[in-house]
Design a protein around this nucleic acid. Structure first.
Lengths: 93, 93
DNA sequence: ATTTTATTTTACCGTTTGGTTATATAACTT
DNA sequence: AAGTTATATAACCAAACGGTAAAATAAAAT
């Protein structure tokens, strides 16, 4: 995923935020942030609640579960390496 | 990640494969596969071992651990939902 | 030596991406 | 009503992307 978008999600993980609050954390223009938020919205990763002019964005992490599931069978690959290391260290002593 | 690339990794998870073997599973041209393999190679996700003309590709899943770690703090978001569902179901009986 | 097989690289092309500035929209403030 | 504030959309652009077909490379087979 695009790194700026990942950072936006990281911010929303802490708490809901308005567009302006998000934009403060970047050196991008506000419209650039709005564009990223649109992409995230269309991916179902955030939702908006409008209070007057302020649009407050909220994290909806569920779609990430898909990535998590894809990753699932790969996890053994790096845990195998760790196991091998552990075993090696055990044999060392 | 690009879906074809994800599929290539899925194939390599099962066993090492040559370029031709991989290409069989796609309706893309063989050079297209080579290009994807190059991207994966540069990302450290695969490595090649050359036996004569055959280039055999091998999965190196470690860089995926980075994604896995990024995902880590998000997991609670969907497990929270599951917990809420469980609780609801418990109260039902 | 020539041809065949396996793969990569190059040159090209249309589409998508991530950014910008300028403009539009909408609600609050004065 | 006029101005300000918050956000979104439009128009534009260069770079990256994902594909192709054609050419280059390299080893094996004949």
């Amino acid at each position: 995923m695009e790194p700026n978008r990942r950072r936006i999600l990281d911010l929303l993980r802490v708490r809901d935020r308005t567009v302006g609050e998000i934009a403060e954390h970047f050196s991008l223009s506000q419209p650039a942030i709005s564009k990223h938020l649109r992409v995230l919205r269309e991916a179902g990763l955030v939702e908006v609640h409008k209070h007057a002019q302020q649009h407050r964005y909220h994290l909806r992490a569920e779609p990430l579960a898909e990535v998590d599931h894809w990753l699932e069978p790969y996890r053994q690959f790096w845990s195998e390496k760790l196991d091998a290391l552990e075993q090696y260290l055990d044999e060392e002593e």
